[in-house]
Each structure stands twice: as C-alpha cells, then as structure tokens.
Amino acid sequence: MNWTFFHKLGSPKWFYDISGKWLPWLQVSSLVLILVALAWGLAFTPPDYLQGNSYRIIFIHVPASFLAQSIYMMMATAAAVTLIWRIKLADMALKVMAPVGASFCILSLVTGAIWGQPTWGTWWVWDARLTSMLILLFLYIGIIALRGAIHTTEAAAKACAILSLVGVVNIPIIKFSVDWWNTLHQGATLKLTEKPSMAPEMLWPLLLAILGFYLFFTMVMVLRLRIEIISRERKTRWVKELVS
C-alpha cells in the first residue's frame, strides 16, 4: 500500500495549491444551497399542525447541532492524526476547526432556546440535548483556551490533541448520563429536537439546509486553513514569494 498519497496530503504546500482550486466552487455552492434551503423552509413549507410557524427554526437548529457535534468528531480525528503521524497540517486543522465548531454550538444553543419559548413559554429548558450541547460548548472553549495558553506551537499542538481525544472519549459518557438524568427528573415532555414525523415537504428543505451548512463549514475551514498555512510556513521560500 503506497502511502505517498497520504503523505502528499500532509504537505501544506500541496494542500494550499489544491484548495486554491476548490475554494470558488465551495463558496458558490454553499451560499446558493443555504439560501435556497432557508428560503424554501421559511416561505414555502406549510406550518406544523402542533407548533405552528415556530418550527421553521428547525432549519437552522438541526443543521447547527449536527455540525457542532460532527466538527468535534473531526477535531478528534485530526488530533489522533497529529499524535500518531505528526502531520503538521492535521494540527493546523485542529486549531482552525475549534472556533468554527464553537460558533455553531452557540448557534444551536441560542436557536434551541428561542424555539423553546413559544413551545414551553420559558427561554431555557434543561432538555437532554440542549444540556449536552452546553457541555459540548465547554469542551470547545476548553480547547480554544488551552491553545491560547500554551505558546510553543509544538507543545500546544500535542496538548490540544490530547485534550480533544480525552473530550471525545467523554462525549458518549456525558450524553448517556445527561439523558439518564433527564428522564429521572422530568416527565415525558415533548422532546424538543425530536423530529415529529417529518412530512416530505418539511424534510427536503431540512436535508438541503444540512448539506448547505456542511458545505459552508468546509469552505470556512479551507479559508482558515490556507491562512494558517501561510502563517506557519512563513519561513519557507514559496510563502515568501507568495507574500511579496
């Protein structure tokens, strides 16, 4: 099995050139998809028989929650790659993904709270998923804070990698214990994000929105990764030519 592809993938310069070609496509497709999906969800789908129009928030809340969780999983894989194969690009990805993941985590929390108001009349509901999302936000902030606190790049890279691996081991435990805690204390309230049997005309815009958000995330990550590459490889000749 030749590993050249894998190692080539690891070199920042190669990634910089390839991503240069992908970027315009990503930008156009993600923004178009998001606009179409949200317009469709907002204006053209009929309201939900139970929750009325407030359910339209689902087209942001669900993609944001999915994204927040899957970004953390991606960070854990990048962390494993950094620790095992010591590929610098993986650490750059880890460093770059954290703020994006945190922003989507906040978006999911806020939209969940806003959605809770018309449905239950209170802004914050200690629902199992919202609480797990809140703890996930703590994990994100922990990684961003640790990255800021350690100044030598190598030590910071490996420390954040270890922290995100410890975090990813902890996520199922947290989810399990929060769900268990939730059922213990509350009766069977309507689970906020449990999708009521989705009528097809609601399901399609949701899937489109999820795809749009994921493409948007890839685009943002490629943008940030290219900048991180320039900053980290500033001593190499190809960056010096690029900059001057």
Binding site: S11, K88, K235
Partner: peptide
C-alpha cells in the same frame, strides 16, 4: 539556510 520549500514539505515538519 532559510527553510526552503521542499524542507517545509517533509512530513516530520
């Protein structure tokens, strides 16, 4: 010598 392009590419970094 300043770290040239190829050097920056090797995996160990």
């Amino acid at each position: 010598r300043s770290v040239d392009g190829e050097r920056g590419q090797d995996v160990q970094g």
